[in-house]
Design a protein around this nucleic acid. Structure first.
Lengths: 113, 113
DNA sequence: ATTCATACTGACAAATGTGACAGTATGGAT
DNA sequence: ATCCATACTGTCACATTTGTCAGTATGAAT
């Protein structure tokens, strides 16, 4: 059960954050929490992400055991990514993170009007 | 009520994460959740951190409204940092993050024995 | 015959983050 | 007279991350 990239921090907060550390990983997981998606669907559903970064992050998440990759040997290729059982343990954490972000995003927006 | 550094992401997850984005910010907040601390106390309580990075992160957290800085004009100087009211809204989120990290840190440790 | 879409890889540049180091002011202790 | 501790600032180098660009294989559509 891999926790992350390089080395595990002593600090559990750092340990958790390192799993979703990467410019787009939080967003990718958030998208996939609605259900499996193809690479190209993900790309189109995340404004601003490049294909290169998407794929790099997907590969890291698969390597860390957070995502599953399912591939059909067709032409053109068709690959689906989904959140693994292990990855699902992360989702409630993301929900709390998201709730905080949503709340303070809203405050910010209201304040700037 | 600032949310973060540069620009606010559309994604609430990213928005939240950007507030604690930085090599040591999670740990700093975690330390301070036990109560206010002086700069030098913090430094000594976080193994591996350099004074430079500590101060940079403290300043960012103050700028973002997460921390409060209280200074006594004595010699040598004495500065205390504490979590602001706004910063405290973050603590339950950190608790959830920490719980996940602790759990999977433990699994990892057990697995490697 | 050409173009398109898919899911990638590789090489490289730009941006950003981090760490190392030196320096500042002051008063007290040695 | 020298050294120490405190809480910083500034500069630079190194490392890592991110983004940009070009290229690959294949079959179906035009």
């Amino acid at each position: 059960m891999p926790v992350s990239k390089k080395e595990i921090s002593e600090c559990p907060i750092d340990a958790m954050l390192s799993v979703i550390d990467g410019r787009w990983k939080g967003t990718i997981l958030w998208r996939l929490s609605d259900g499996p998606m193809r690479t190209s669907e993900l790309r189109r559903s995340i404004p601003g992400i490049t294909e290169r970064m998407l794929i790099r992050h997907l590969q890291e998440l698969v390597r860390d055991g957070i995502l599953l990759r399912r591939q059909k040997n067709s032409v053109p290729p068709c690959v689906h990514y989904s959140i693994s059982k292990y990855g699902w343990t992360l989702v409630p954490v993301l929900e709390v993170i998201c709730a905080w972000g949503r709340k303070h995003l809203r405050l910010k927006a209201t304040a700037s009007i």
